[in-house]
């Protein structure tokens, strides 16, 4: 774990039993950004480390992941989004900020933008899960298949330092939130309510998030941009860390104007160009 990120906890206001808390990491300096991790849990990927050089990154751990306890009363990712909203209100001074979510984190981020639009300035949905069409083939969780589907460049995959019980717990949490089919019909019917500027990223080799899912998001979310990351599969933060890091940073700093090629002057507006 990068030394820039420190691990903390936040007491759950909704938890009646003492000792129940939400774990989170925080690191970096600058404007606040909320980072929502994928189903494999939290890891300081290269794009995230890059983000922390210009932003203060808040990264709550979804209950049940990375060795944390499930909150029995929270059984859906929609419920997780409400919890994250509380977290933002409590920990982020303005109560609102930009939100970046990868895969499962994108799913939660989309709910957050639908349910609490006043708290999301800009949204980045990186290979967002949850939007598989009803006729999409079932997802495979067989390790060999998953490895092939997750990475176009498996050689870049970091050696997983997480203990086996974390990995097992993460899988159990996916089941707990009924996220295995990666299809949230309620959310799909409401993504057009997302008002903020939204960057959608998709690896050209991603089969876990079908291309028609991100095309649907691009069509439905009024102020959205869809970027294809060439030569990347679902784990695009691992496959193409530089491209992904640059895109996120550039989008968050320049908003809609990120489509204009920036000069390499090193100034804030041109950062990442």
């Amino acid at each position: 774990m990068s030394s820039d990120f420190k691990s903390l906890t936040w007491p759950l206001r909704s938890a009646e039993a003492p000792g129940r808390e939400l774990s989170y990491f925080v690191g970096g300096r600058g404007p606040d950004v909320l980072y929502l991790h994928p189903a494999s849990g939290f890891r300081v990927s290269d794009p995230l480390a890059r983000l922390a050089t210009k932003f203060r990154v808040w990264a709550p751990i979804v209950p049940g992941f990375d060795g944390t306890e499930l909150q029995e009363e929270i059984t859906t990712l929609r419920g997780v989004a409400d919890l994250i909203s509380e977290f933002m209100s409590a920990k982020i001074s303005s109560g609102r900020c930009d939100v970046v979510g990868h895969s499962l984190g994108g799913w939660i981020g989309a709910w957050l933008a639908v349910l609490h639009p006043e708290q999301v300035d800009q949204l980045v949905l990186s290979a967002p899960a949850g939007f598989r069409a009803p006729d999409a083939a079932p997802l495979s969780f067989e390790p060999a298949v998953m490895l092939k589907q997750l990475y176009a460049h498996p050689e870049k995959r970091p050696i997983d330092e997480k203990p086996p019980e974390f990995i097992t717990g993460n899988r159990d949490a996916i089941v707990h939130y009924d996220a295995g089919e990666s299809r949230d019909v309620d959310l799909m019917s409401r993504v057009s309510e997302i008002e903020c500027g939204t960057l959608i990223m998709h690896g050209t080799q991603d089969v876990r998030v079908p291309v028609d899912a991100v095309q649907m998001l691009r069509h439905e979310i009024p102020h959205s941009q869809l970027m294809y990351i060439y030569d990347a599969a679902h784990g695009l933060e691992i496959d193409q860390p530089e491209r992904v890091g640059e895109l996120i940073e550039d989008f968050l700093m320049r908003g809609e104007a990120f489509i204009v090629k920036a000069t390499q002057t090193g100034d804030a507006a041109g950062a990442g160009a």
Binding site: Q215, H219, L226, M227, I229, Y230, R243, I259
Partner: peptide, 28 residues
């Protein structure tokens, strides 16, 4: 390889898109 993928995308994509590749970058 990259250019052919991009050309096919440009022809078939139903909505505007961007491309971040090794040789080619287009935001819109």
């Amino acid at each position: 390889r990259e250019a052919v993928s991009l050309i096919l995308k440009a022809w078939t994509e139903p909505e505007p898109f961007g491309w971040e590749g090794e040789h080619y970058q287009f935001r819109a």
